[in-house]
Amino acid sequence: MNKYIGVVLLFALFSCNSATENANQTQDSTAVQVDSTATSIALDDQQVQEIYNHYIILKDALVATNFEQARPAASELSAKLAGYAGCENTALIAKKIAEAKNIADQRKEFTFLSSDIIALFKHADLTAGTIYVQRCPMANNGDGGEWLASEKQIQNPYYGDEMMDCGAVLEEIHTK
């Protein structure tokens, strides 16, 4: 029992960035379709699953350098994050992506979003599939940028088709 409490406390501390509680608030929206690659990942918590699915939709829009598709994807992700306790601040980052004026600004904010999201999924209860933490060392003027993917193959959301395969897998998150 003590081990379980410790895991829950770690999850609360390292997920997203905020400790306020809002877990019972849910948002229901079907404006964005879930990509089939995201469905190969199964998480124990349905809210966390939805966050992952919408994150992948946003990441894929950035990979495709599709500014217009990234906006509603980020908006949907923001709503999912706002409804999950501890992720309210991360929801604000997703909202900035939705309101960005261009793809460059979306990609800049995606770095901050991904940092928080990666922390969430390192502590999530993955029941099927593998989540890949990937990094492009050239993103953000050489500071680098990380993201999550459902596949091992690099598809760079920071450069899209300009440098599609720039990056490497840093870590694999497996089922427990």
Rank of each mutant, 00 (worst) to 15 (best):
V63K: 05
T65K: 04
Y55M: 10
A61K: 04
A38Q: 03
V63L: 11
H54P: 07
F14Y: 07
N17M: 10
S29L: 13
G6H: 13
A61T: 05
A31Y: 06
L13K: 05
N24Y: 01
V34T: 15
S29A: 12
N53G: 03
E21V: 12
T30I: 07
G6N: 13
Q49W: 01
K59H: 04
A42N: 08
D35K: 08
A12D: 10
L43I: 12
N53P: 02
E68M: 11
S15N: 11
N24H: 01
L43Y: 01
F11G: 12
K59C: 02
D35S: 10
I56K: 09
D28S: 15
T39S: 14
T26V: 14
L62G: 02
A12T: 13
N66Y: 09
N17R: 07
A38R: 09
T26D: 12
A38Y: 04
A70V: 10
V48S: 05
I57M: 01
N66C: 06
Q47P: 00
I5G: 09
L13N: 10
L9I: 15
N24I: 07
N66V: 11
A12R: 14
Q33M: 06
L13W: 03
V34Y: 04
A42C: 02
I51C: 06
Y4P: 03
K59E: 08
D44F: 06
A31K: 11
D60K: 14
Y52W: 12
Y55L: 02
Q25F: 06
L13V: 01
I51F: 07
T65E: 12
V48E: 09
A61P: 00
S29Q: 10
N17Q: 12
V7C: 03
N17C: 12
T26I: 11
A42R: 11
A31R: 10
A64F: 05
D28M: 14
L62C: 03
H54Y: 10
V48K: 01
C16Q: 03
A38F: 06
T26H: 06
T39I: 15
N53F: 01
Q25I: 08
V48A: 04
T30H: 11
I41D: 08
I57V: 08
E50T: 11
T20Q: 02
N17Y: 11
T37N: 15
V32S: 08
S15P: 10
F67Q: 11
F14D: 04
E50L: 06
L58F: 00
L58G: 01
V63T: 11
H54Q: 12
L13E: 08
A64T: 14
D60P: 00
T39L: 14
D28N: 15
Y55P: 03
T65W: 02
V63P: 11
T26K: 09
L9F: 08
A23F: 05
S29N: 14
T20G: 03
A19C: 04
Q33P: 01
E68G: 01
V34Q: 00
N17P: 01
